[in-house]
Amino acid sequence: MPISCSQRYWQLLRNSLIISTLTVTLTLIVASMAAFAFAHVKFYGSSMLLSYLTLGLLFPAATAVLPLFIKVRDLGLLDTYFGVALPQVAFGLAMSVLLLRRFFKDIPHELLEAALVDGCSYVKFFRYVTLPLSRPILATVGTITFVNSWNAYLLPLVMLNTDALYPWPLGIMVYQGEYSSEWHLILAFITLTILPTIILFLIAQKHIVAGLTAGAVKG
């Protein structure tokens, strides 16, 4: 049976898509809110909290993956999509908040002051001015988060036990284990699973390159 028709292939893609979508959506919401607070509200401890968040840039998720596993288990999230997505969001936050904050800061402060004076609240300003003006950076952060989550291996490997929930990097490793030297099958499977990434890259290459290099420069 051709791989493209098999239930297995579609299930892997579906799982990956669900986890990545969850991660991207949550990252964009949570990070843009925090970035807005850091960019536009002056408060005591602001810079301290920001450097607290940027600690996340210093070490890889792998260092604490065992306690993370136990934490996710204690929360009852083991073997769920959220058990993978939430830690992914948490580890992507530092970079996302930094990128978004830098962009938000460039929105003229006079705009905010004028809006506040006219009776607009901070929250409304965020919703109706900041977010619509920030589409390019949101697209960039969203794309990087998506690619990272789509390609992720270690976190799903630790957090998921059920085959039916596996995203494609896990599934393809299982597949390789089953058909160890039938390379034509494995290569076909790989081609089919990296196809979405390549298509996304061709569509969003500007965002990906800009985001990765800009994010890097600030890292």
């Binding site: 809110m33 998720a61 530092a94």
Partner: peptide, 21 residues
């Protein structure tokens, strides 16, 4: 804004990044 916007990020970060370390 501070009460609404900061806690989700700080909570997630503390729970899944800082505490595990």
């Amino acid at each position: 804004v501070l009460i609404l916007f900061l806690p989700p990020a700080l909570l997630l970060f503390t729970l899944f990044v800082v505490l595990p370390i």
